[in-house]
Measured scan of single mutants.
Amino acid sequence: KSPLTGYVRFMNERREQLRAKRPEVPFPEITRMLGNEWSKLPPEEKQRYLDEADRDKERYMKELEQY
């Protein structure tokens, strides 16, 4: 499975939280809201997602080498 970027990891995590709080909001609007939230997120909060993405990318590269 391909590695996910930090942005995609953030979107996946927050999308479920936002949909639970506001189920009436259409999917494209949720994506737009989360995109704005990501762009305003402080670098230190973004870093968690970026670090997870880096670890996932390393895992993926190792799997490719073994293939």
Rank of each mutant, 00 (worst) to 15 (best):
V25T: 10
D51E: 05
R59Q: 13
R22L: 14
E63P: 09
Q66I: 05
P42T: 07
L18Q: 02
R9L: 12
P43N: 06
R32K: 09
T5L: 12
P23C: 02
R22A: 12
Q66S: 10
R9A: 10
E58F: 04
K62I: 05
A20F: 03
Y49T: 02
P42G: 06
R48I: 08
R59T: 12
E29P: 01
R55N: 12
F10L: 01
Y7S: 11
V8H: 11
Y7V: 08
R32G: 03
K57N: 10
A53W: 01
T5Y: 06
K1M: 05
T5Q: 12
T31E: 14
K1V: 02
Q17A: 08
Y67H: 03
T5C: 07
E13W: 00
P42Y: 00
L18Y: 04
L18A: 03
P26A: 13
F27D: 15
R22I: 13
F10P: 01
V25Y: 02
Y60L: 11
P43Y: 03
E13K: 10
Q17I: 11
K1D: 01
I30G: 06
N12W: 01
Q66E: 14
Y7E: 13
T5P: 11
M61S: 12
P42S: 08
R14Q: 07
R14W: 02
V8G: 11
M61G: 14
L50P: 02
K57E: 13
V25K: 09
E58W: 03
K46E: 02
Y7T: 07
E24F: 09
E63K: 08
D54Y: 02
L18I: 09
P3D: 07
Q47R: 08
E13S: 02
K1Y: 05
D56R: 02
Y7D: 07
P28D: 15
V8Y: 10
Y60R: 15
Q66N: 14
V25W: 01
E65P: 07
E29H: 15
T5I: 10
E45H: 00
E44K: 10
E13M: 06
P43A: 12
Q17S: 09
L18M: 11
A53Y: 02
E63D: 11
Y49H: 03
R22S: 10
R55G: 11
L34S: 03
P26N: 10
A20R: 11
R19N: 11
L50H: 15
A20H: 08
V8M: 15
R48L: 05
R15C: 12
R15S: 13
Y49A: 02
D56E: 13
D54L: 13
P43G: 04
R55F: 08
D54I: 08
L4R: 08
Q66L: 11
P28M: 13
K57S: 11
V8F: 12
E45L: 04
D54R: 13
Y7K: 15
F10A: 03
D56F: 01
L18H: 02
P28E: 15
M61A: 13
E16H: 03
P23K: 03
P26G: 07
K62G: 12
P28I: 06
E29G: 02
D56N: 06
P28A: 15
Q47P: 01
K21C: 10
E65F: 02
S2A: 09
L64G: 15
E58T: 11
Q47N: 06
Q66H: 07
R55V: 12
E13I: 10
Y49F: 08
R14N: 02
S2E: 09
R19L: 13
N12R: 08
L18C: 02
M11R: 02
T31S: 08
R59Y: 11
E16M: 02
Q17R: 03
P42A: 09
K1G: 02
R9D: 01
L64Y: 12
S39P: 15
T31I: 06
K57R: 12
V8S: 11
N12Q: 13
F10V: 04
A20Y: 00
R22M: 11
Y7A: 06
E24W: 04
S2F: 04
K21Q: 14
R48Y: 05
P3V: 10
E52K: 00
A53H: 03
K1E: 00
N12F: 05
L50N: 15
D54S: 11
A20S: 09
S2R: 05
L41C: 01
E44S: 07
Q47L: 11
P42C: 07
R32L: 02
L50R: 10
A53N: 06
P23Y: 00
R32C: 01
Q47K: 13
D54V: 12
L50K: 13
K62E: 11
M11H: 01
P26D: 12
R59D: 14
K21S: 14
L50F: 11
R9H: 06
P26W: 00
Y60D: 14
P28S: 14
E65L: 06
P26H: 06
I30E: 05
L41A: 01
S2D: 08
R19F: 08
N12M: 15
E65C: 07
Q47S: 08
D54N: 10
T31D: 14
D56K: 08
L4Y: 10
M33L: 12
Q47C: 02
N36I: 11
Y49P: 01
Q47V: 05
E44P: 06
Q47H: 02
I30P: 01
E13L: 06
F27S: 15
A53E: 14
M61T: 10
E29S: 03
E24K: 03
S2I: 08
Y49C: 00
M33K: 12
F27V: 15
L41I: 00
E45S: 04
F10R: 02
R48V: 09
R9I: 09
T5R: 05
V8W: 07
T31V: 06
L64V: 13
K62V: 09
K46R: 09
E29W: 00
E63F: 01
S2T: 14
L50S: 15
R48K: 13
P43E: 08
Y49R: 05
Y67F: 12
T5S: 13
K21W: 01
P43W: 02
K62F: 07
E45P: 00
E29K: 02
R9S: 03
P28H: 14
R59V: 13
A53C: 06
R55C: 10
Y60V: 12
R22G: 12
E24C: 07
L4V: 04
E24P: 08
R14G: 01
E16K: 06
S39F: 08
K46Y: 00
G35C: 03
P43I: 06
R55K: 14
F27E: 15
Y60P: 15
E44G: 08
P3F: 12
D54T: 12
L41R: 00
R14M: 09
E29Y: 01
P3C: 08
E52M: 04
E44I: 05
Q47F: 10
P3E: 14
P23H: 02
R59S: 13
E29F: 01
L4A: 15
K1T: 04
R48E: 04
P42M: 02
M11Y: 10
D56L: 00
R9C: 05
K21I: 08
Y60A: 15
K46C: 01
F10S: 04
M61H: 12
R14E: 04
R22W: 15
R15Y: 07
E16Y: 00
G6D: 01
E13T: 06
E63Y: 03
E44M: 07
K62M: 09
Q66G: 13
E63G: 10
R9W: 01
R59W: 03
M11C: 14
R48M: 05
I30M: 05
M11D: 01
E13Y: 00
I30L: 12
K62T: 13
F10D: 03
E63R: 08
R15V: 15
K21P: 00
L4D: 15
R59G: 13
Q66K: 15
E44T: 07
K62N: 14
M61L: 12
D54K: 10
P26F: 01
A20K: 11
D51R: 02
E58S: 10
E13F: 04
L64W: 05
F27W: 15
L64H: 14
Q17L: 08
Q17H: 04
Q47I: 00
E16F: 00
R9M: 09
P43C: 08
L41P: 01
E29N: 01
K57T: 06
R14H: 04
M61R: 11
R22K: 09
